[in-house]
């Protein structure tokens, strides 16, 4: 009995020492205790697939084909250009409403804010890490830029900025442009843009020299 207990105890100790406890950090791939059909010979996205010569399970569309529902037509909403020309469309070719604006704000926060900053002044956090020349949307050149040209810049990138066409769907690109326009407007607005019942409150809140000039108080040139 004594020997049995000794061997029994040592076995348990050995198993515990070798196997460790739950949650231990391990570099080895997880053990699959009953592997039955855990891994099937089917292709999953973004995995290795030796069946194809390039070894990728996720396939690109065959050259000369378009996927159902993909944007292939030469329409302003897809290209930002007037059909058949290389001229930019001046105004967003989708309906701008509050929903689109909200969507634009959300998507701007996800994709643009790190570089262009919450205010759109090009002072995003990446500037601290060595990125340069992030566009300031309040620059008069960009205020005047056609919506189609901004669309093109988002889709294909511009100067040091990479293309975002793969990450941001078309509808969201226009939503972001609508929001960028709102950001620009926030620094170009006049007192006349403020609803009448809020103007007095705003006048009172203005810094001392402002009350003298009546209507267009802060229009930067």
């Amino acid at each position: 009995m004594r020997y049995f207990l000794l061997i029994f105890g040592l076995t348990i100790l050995g198993v515990m020492l070798i196997a460790g406890k739950r949650g231990d950090i391990s570099r080895r791939p997880p053990l699959e205790v009953f592997p039955d059909m855990d891994r099937m010979p089917k292709l999953r996205p973004q995995t290795r697939a030796d069946f194809f010569t390039d070894g990728m399970s996720s396939r690109l569309p065959v050259a000369g084909t378009v996927a159902r529902g993909s944007a292939w037509q030469d329409a302003p909403v897809n290209t930002g250009k007037q059909p058949g020309t290389t001229n930019w469309v001046e105004v967003i070719p989708v309906a701008v409403n509050e929903q689109l604006m909200k969507r634009g704000q959300e998507r701007y926060t996800v994709y643009c804010l790190v570089c262009h900053g919450a205010a759109g002044d090009g002072k995003g956090i990446t500037g601290k890490y060595g990125m340069v020349a992030m566009a300031n949307f309040h620059d008069p050149r960009l205020v005047k830029m056609a919506d189609g040209e901004i669309f093109n810049a988002i889709t294909f990138g511009k100067n040091l900025m990479g293309p975002y066409g793969g990450q941001i769907p078309i509808e969201d690109r226009w939503a972001i442009i609508a929001y960028v326009r709102a950001l620009q407007r926030s620094r170009l607005a006049t007192l006349d843009d403020v609803p009448a019942d809020h103007r007095d409150a705003l006048r009172r809140a203005m810094p001392p020299p402002a009350p003298a000039t009546n209507a267009p108080a802060a229009r930067p040139q």
């Binding site: 996800v110 040091l160 990479g162």
Partner: peptide, 28 residues
């Protein structure tokens, strides 16, 4: 979602392409 951009539309949450990394790491 900056990198895992398809997570809201797809069953699969994509790993970003290297070009997504290069959006910043072409400079940083």
């Amino acid at each position: 979602r900056y990198c895992h951009s398809a997570v809201e539309k797809s069953w699969y949450s994509n790993i970003p392409t290297a070009s997504t990394c290069m959006n910043c790491h072409n400079q940083v």
